[in-house]
Design a protein around this nucleic acid. Structure first.
Length: 418
RNA sequence: GAGGGUGUAGCUCAGCAGGUUAGAGCGCAAGAUUGUGGCUCUUGAGGCCGUGGGUUCGAACCCCAUCAUCCUCCCCA
């Protein structure tokens, strides 16, 4: 048994074929929607992440794995939108075409308490459309997210959409909300009272019934939105509607990250408390990074582990791991050496080969062959070596024939191509 | 960060009110079948009973702490 400090809390080790299968399927959908995968570093300067995600956000204030090396502070990336925007600006991706459609899939890190569907190292997949202020871009992001869940046959989900408007509109609303809530702050929870000053929008998110009741008469964000914002949001909604994707609009949907403006949306499931995916438009992030011009952008981020929760709740059956084409069973030292070399030559011809590495009995090798689920087994002993023949066994049918060794490659290929 | 549940074999779990060598099923291994898998039967390997301390003649069991894990809250993917 290993010492208990050999593992860190909230992490998992993945060895399963299911993980690869899910990744592959996600990437297929991204390709279908013309997204190109981008990979950014696992750790980033704290400065960039803090600016991008927001100095006051929960993520930055209390959930980062951080360290210092030399004069620079680093963090393990807590999310990927900010790093991708950084990469876009730094590598001048706009020069490769006016609209960049980027996807990603990889680990992120947050120092939170682990829970169902939540880990300290977790994995996000997502997509960003950078360079388009067209409401169809927002709808495209919704579409690709829903298509991924659709690709797994998952449909019982709730999609909520809202607009946060422009910073000016939001500021005006924040002030109004604060004015409304301040005289009533005695009735608020401790957490909400703290937010009253810092970020009153987040109070809207409350799940406490008495707070929700209190908010019934509160000013509503929609009333503070200008003509343009409303028109834009209406177009986003109608595009999503055109795609046949069910959703509800929810003026109380706010998101924890500072960079959102205009469209925000969130995907939820009954299987889980937290969100499956969160998303939105973040036209101002580029300016936050010090870029002279704003860069319109919209994207989503979804949790792999949460997808797995939903899949396993739905009783999803993952395909079996891939089996070798053939298993080589060898009897005796000579035959073992033959099999060892034969495996290599078959593999050079794109045949997937497995064989025993323990010098075990033939019976044990057969059991191993069965377990490997190889459809064909080649059995070779001294007799076959002398006659330069091999026994080729069809495991499903239990039939076996002796063939010249020279025909082996051809026979395996012919069988596998059927 | 707050509250609660659970930690016994690779996995799923038993273990009566503290009592001697800690069990089952599945899985794994060997044999029955000396060159043939699955099915069956037999046998076997594998446990610091999460960790540390305490109470006791005696602790898997009781107490404390700690770690891990799960759930609720918080927040988010």
């Amino acid at each position: 048994m290993l010492p208990q400090d050999y593992t860190a809390a909230g992490n998992q080790t993945h060895g399963s074929a299911a993980w690869l299968f899910v990744e592959r399927r996600i990437r297929e959908v991204f390709e279908r929607f013309d997204f190109r995968e981008i990979r950014t570093p696992m750790f980033e300067p704290t400065e960039m992440i803090a600016r991008g995600v927001g100095e006051t956000s929960d993520i930055v204030t209390k959930e980062m794995f951080a360290w210092t090396k030399g004069d620079t502070n680093y963090v393990l990336r807590p999310e990927l939108t900010a790093p991708i925007m950084r990469a876009y600006l730094q590598h001048r991706l706009d020069q490769q075409g006016p609209v960049q459609r980027l996807s990603y899939l990889g680990p992120c890190f947050r120092a939170e308490r682990p829970a169902r569907g939540r880990f300290r190292q977790f994995h996000q997949f997502g997509a960003e459309i950078i360079g388009s202020a067209d409401p169809r871009a927002d709808a495209e992001v919704v579409a690709v997210l829903m298509a991924i869940y659709g690709a797994f046959g998952i449909e019982n989900l709730r999609l909520r959409i809202n607009t946060l408007g422009t910073p000016e509109e939001r500021t005006a609303y924040k002030a109004a909300l604060r004015t409304f809530l301040t005289p009533r702050q005695e009735a608020l929870s401790d957490i909400s009272r703290e937010r009253l000053d810092k970020n009153p929008l987040r109070i809207l998110d409350t799940k406490l019934e008495y707070e929700q009741a209190l908010l019934e008469n509160a000013p509503i964000l929609t009333d503070f939105l200008g003509q343009e914002t409303r028109a834009f949001f209406d177009r986003v909604c109608s595009y999503v509607h055109d795609l046949g994707i069910p959703f509800v609009t929810d003026p109380k949907l706010v998101r924890g990250l500072d960079y959102y403006a205009h469209t925000t949306f969130e995907l939820e499931s009954d299987a889980l408390n937290g969100a499956l995916a969160g998303a939105g438009r973040y036209d101002l992030l580029a300016k936050d990074f010090g870029n002279p011009n704003p860069v319109p952008a919209v994207g989503f981020a979804a949790g792999m582990e949460r997808l797995f929760v939903v899949l396993s709740d739905a009783g999803y059956v993952f395909p079996e791991v891939s089996a070798p084409d053939v298993f080589l069973v060898a009897i005796g030292n000579e035959a073992e050496n033959w099999a060892f070399r034969k495996a290599q030559s078959l593999r050079k011809n794109d045949i997937r080969v497995a064989f025993d590495l323990k010098g075990r009995s033939m019976k044990a090798q057969m059991r191993e062959a069965d377990r490997s689920r190889a459809p064909l087994v080649v059995i070779v002993g001294d007799q076959e070596l002398v006659s330069e023949s091999v026994n080729l066994k069809n495991m499903a049918e239990g039939t076996q024939e002796t063939i010249p060794e020279l025909d082996l490659m051809h026979r395996i290929k012919r069988f596998s191509s059927k």
